[in-house]
Design a protein around this nucleic acid. Structure first.
Lengths: 150, 150
DNA sequence: TTAAATAAAGACAAAAAACTCTTTTATTAT
DNA sequence: ATAATAAAAGAGTTTTTTGTCTTTATTTAA
């Protein structure tokens, strides 16, 4: 018996972040990236990431276009979204506001044993993700200084 | 579509931590706490937390005794375990060492876009959990300054 | 030495998350 | 108009996590 808890995000959310960063780097000035290329590029199940992107597309975090030469891309607004926006969309805001021990009523007045310590950490995570903009990793990804495949 | 990702730990692990802290506070000098009392005390499903404690017991993180006046308790060694030990036992060490974007091969030489930021945060979490000993919350729990129920 | 109390074990069941397959709809180029 | 290309949608399946129920084994006290 041993759970397999990742750090922080659901698998879905990890794929979402990686996919969006991939699209940010590979699309631009009119060109788009197809779902197959994305799936390969971030090493994720094709139909699964397709679902995720459909959802992000409905919510305006990415743009898409059907038909020949279609695919996914990011408009000006989307490039300005932060990773925190993606996380919130996919996983909700548990990462930013949840109690570390899962207590619904955990608060300043009824703190769990880890309340204050986790508050600090949560704020760091939030700050980090809010300041990380979708478009800011392009150059390093291009130079192979950063990676999106496992 | 929206996942329901908690911060950091699996539910199982949250229950485990709460249960152990509860036992730490309620047992001692020969007295033990029964599974029913624990389940009520931390507001968790009785049979589920029973399973979890069986596992922790096999691994020596808690002690138990069958029969009348039996129940769970902590010996000297167990009181000295840290919350990090519980987390590692239940969830593995993904929280301490995993990549934030789920990349198996993420490392110093092949970093994901969040590698360095997350490394810092992971280390904080690790430090915090390693320095938090199982027995150190007793007084505050007793005074109702801390809570284990949702 | 028996009955009661308790944890341990085993076998399910339900819910959520992760993943797949097939069909439909929109777009473009010919 | 038509065929080709791509995303969108829908309807699954599988795996993992969470939770339940029943039976067994152990201990104690009367």
């Amino acid at each position: 018996m041993q759970n397999n808890q990742d750090l922080m995000f659901s698998k879905t959310c990890e794929y979402a972040i990686r996919a969006v960063l991939f699209i940010a780097q590979r699309s631009g000035n009119g060109s788009r990236v197809g779902i197959k290329e994305i799936a390969k590029g971030i090493d994720s199940p094709e139909h699964f990431i397709a679902k995720i992107l459909q959802d992000l597309s409905r919510k305006g975090l990415v743009q898409s276009q059907k038909g020949p030469n279609g695919g996914f891309y990011l408009d000006r607004a989307s490039l300005n979204y932060s990773l925190a926006d993606i996380v919130r969309t996919v996983d909700g805001d548990g990462v930013f506001s949840g109690c570390g021990l899962g207590l619904k009523q955990c608060s300043e007045t009824k703190p769990c044993p880890l309340h204050n310590e986790f508050k600090k950490i949560r704020e760091e995570i939030k700050g980090l993700l809010q300041s990380a903009k979708v478009g800011e990793f392009n150059k390093e990804l291009e130079k192979n200084l950063l990676f999106l495949r496992r």
